[in-house]
Amino acid sequence: MEMTEDFAIRPFQMDVDSIDELTRLLNVSYKQLSDLGLRYLATHQDSTITRERIDGAHCLIALKDNRIIGTISFYKPGMKHGCPWYERDTVGVVGQYAVHPDYQGLGLGTLLLNRVETYAFQTGLKELALDTAEPAAHLRSIYEKKGYRFIEFANWDVTNYRSVILSKTLPSKRENTQ
């Protein structure tokens, strides 16, 4: 478990943590996007869907005062489908990425994403990808500033928008040791 001044970050534990609490976090964190008319699955998914979406993933949670205030899931190659980029054997995928609105803008989201990028690098992957709504320009801008670039468009059956697939080239082992 990683501790920062205000947060603890650790893997989600099915036998310890509440899937219902994780689901509520996702729902409330994506509400502002829902208010914009974007129907991300996380805006309305129930606990059964949350459990399915983290099954087999490396799901991290951020805790403050024993409450889940952030989450991110990493999926190994072969776990995510629906667009050609996600199906490459050198590409990991980020999903279910959320920070409670009360804690947004404090760097917690960056900390979670950095942890997953490090994990993906350590597993030997060359790329880490994610998707967001094409109309969510503010999110696209954040990801682009973090080194993610546009790859392709995708249309998911569970959303009402076209998604942009963004990906970041992870450092090679030689680059990382310098």
Rank of each mutant, 00 (worst) to 15 (best):
I72M: 01
I72L: 09
I72P: 00
S73H: 10
S73F: 05
S73I: 04
F74V: 01
F74K: 10
F74M: 05
Y75F: 14
Y75G: 00
K76F: 04
P77Q: 15
P77A: 08
P77Y: 03
M79K: 12
M79W: 10
K80L: 10
K80G: 03
G82I: 13
G82Y: 06
G82F: 09
C83S: 08
P84L: 13
P84Q: 12
W85M: 00
W85P: 05
Y86D: 02
Y86I: 15
E87K: 06
R88E: 11
T90G: 12
V91C: 00
G92P: 15
G92Y: 10
V93F: 11
Q96G: 13
Q96P: 05
Y97H: 02
A98H: 11
A98Y: 10
V99F: 14
H100Q: 06
P101R: 09
P101L: 05
P101I: 04
D102P: 11
D102S: 15
D102N: 03
D102A: 14
Y103M: 00
Y103N: 01
Y103F: 14
Y103L: 04
Q104M: 08
G105R: 02
G105Y: 08
G105F: 09
L106G: 13
G107P: 09
L108G: 00
G109D: 06
G109I: 06
G109K: 08
T110G: 13
T110Y: 07
T110H: 07
L111R: 13
L111H: 12
L111K: 14
L112E: 00
L113E: 00
L113D: 02
L113W: 09
L113P: 04
N114M: 05
N114I: 10
N114D: 12
N114E: 09
R115Y: 12
R115T: 02
R115H: 12
R115K: 09
V116W: 01
V116S: 11
V116Y: 06
E117G: 12
T118A: 14
T118H: 13
T118Y: 15
T118R: 15
T118W: 00
T118S: 13
Y119K: 14
Y119T: 06
Y119S: 12
Y119Q: 08
Y119M: 11
Y119E: 04
A120L: 03
A120I: 02
F121I: 00
F121G: 09
F121E: 09
Q122D: 09
T123S: 03
T123F: 15
T123Q: 00
T123V: 07
G124Q: 00
G124P: 00
G124L: 08
K126I: 13
E127S: 07
E127Q: 15
E127R: 11
E127C: 01
E127Y: 06
L128W: 10
L128C: 15
L128I: 08
A129N: 06
L130C: 10
L130D: 00
D131M: 12
D131H: 00
D131G: 03
D131L: 04
D131E: 14
T132D: 05
T132N: 03
T132E: 10
T132L: 07
A133G: 04
A133S: 11
A133P: 01
